[in-house]
Nucleic acid binder design. Structure first.
Lengths: 123, 123
DNA sequence: CCGTATCCTGAAGGATACTG
DNA sequence: CAGTATCCTTCAGGATACGG
């Protein structure tokens, strides 16, 4: 069996990279929500209950840096800002949808694994 | 637009749970490798270059706790141990393959996003 | 309304050395 | 060969308070 080099696993494996990108806590939620249309921060915060102002801004800034999200500022008072997906961002919706669909069909199994994981952490 | 409650996002969203499970550094690699057949720890370490003995054991223990991997010990000297996927583990190969395939077809885009991410970290 | 700055805790994960 | 134990660094991410 062919070995997977360290460099390959760390830097070249797109599969792992994708999982890593998507595991940032609010990333899938934000991308998915933005795929429904451009949104203002207030709306986003309202939809993703539990996200703090800090994490909202921070995650959006990251997505912006990654080239996934675009920030548009309207110069009015009070401030009006809108976030939308770039074309790159649109593409990222695909794997989320893929995993989402599979996850829906297999939620029992995931719940089992995830539950066992939580249980083993607290022991 | 319907809000996603904190509890829903944290505890009920199978999509996020799955991403979270798979983002543990060596999890996708180990599950995928084990899907090629039962393996001894030595073989696994040889294949996943860069994994430390600690992380190998630790991750395998976790997967065992989650019900994804089975550990079989043959009582001989020197010790002989084998790891294999449970039926639950076999199922987990599916989403990995799904993401893997998509990632292969879109490695350019992922590389772009991932690269931008790395770049923005070091600035 | 939108964003920034600081502080703080836990957890991930690598290095190393030791056991049967 | 397989596994355990310790130490240490980094960082995600939450709480809180302030600014335009």
């Amino acid at each position: 069996m062919k070995p997977i080099s360290k460099e390959e696993y760390d830097l070249k494996c797109s599969t792992r990279q994708l999982f890593e990108l998507m595991s940032e806590k609010w990333v899938p939620g934000l991308i998915y929500t933005l795929s429904l249309g451009p949104q203002r921060p207030g709306k986003l915060a309202g939809r993703l209950q539990g996200i703090s102002k800090k994490m909202l801004t921070q995650t959006l800034r990251n997505l912006e840096d990654w080239g996934v999200v675009k920030r548009t500022v309207y110069d009015v008072v009070p401030p009006h800002v809108e976030y939308s997906l770039t074309s790159l961002g649109e593409k990222m919706v695909e794997p989320i949808a893929l995993v989402h669909d599979w996850a829906q069909e297999n939620r029992e199994d995931i719940a089992k694994v995830f539950g066992n994981r939580l249980a083993s952490k607290t022991s």
